[in-house]
Amino acid sequence: MQAQQNEKLSLLVDDELDAVQELSLLKTVQQDLELQAKLRRYALISQAMKTEQCSVASPDFAAKIHQQLKQEPIYFLPRKKNDKVFHKAALAVAASVVLAVVWVSASKWQKQTLPFAGVNQIAQRSVQADQMNAHFKEYLQAHDKVWHVNNDTGVQSYARLASYQKK
């Protein structure tokens, strides 16, 4: 009997019991403190095995939350609804959602229609680097005419885009 219950608890933790068996077992557990403790241990072991991490809560953690919820006051006072404010707020929320959807769609569409925008940016940077290098080369040659001797390779950019293939 004990072994059978242990097996059922294990199956419950692994979510392998059908609904009827689950309900029956939970009713039994509710009445038996030892089974409750065993269920918590099984759950902890299962969590540790699945995630290699576990956090241990105190045994009465769930009971304390239950108690706190029971102590929450219940208000039965009628609430006056401001319909105009409610409608305006609803309209504002709806408009915001529409705007957000339009903005996201537009940006996606832009990305789709300009698939080479990234390449253009790289090419632009490459052009700027080339211009800087050409400028630097002119400075060098004005500084010392012996730099006319060196051919162009010495002052070209260290990295340049040779080809691009979209995946």
Binding site: V146, V149, N150, N151, T153, G154
Partner: peptide
């Protein structure tokens, strides 16, 4: 032979 900046130019 000019050797400058890792570049060799023979002239």
């Amino acid at each position: 032979v000019f050797m400058k900046n890792g570049q060799i130019d023979t002239m």
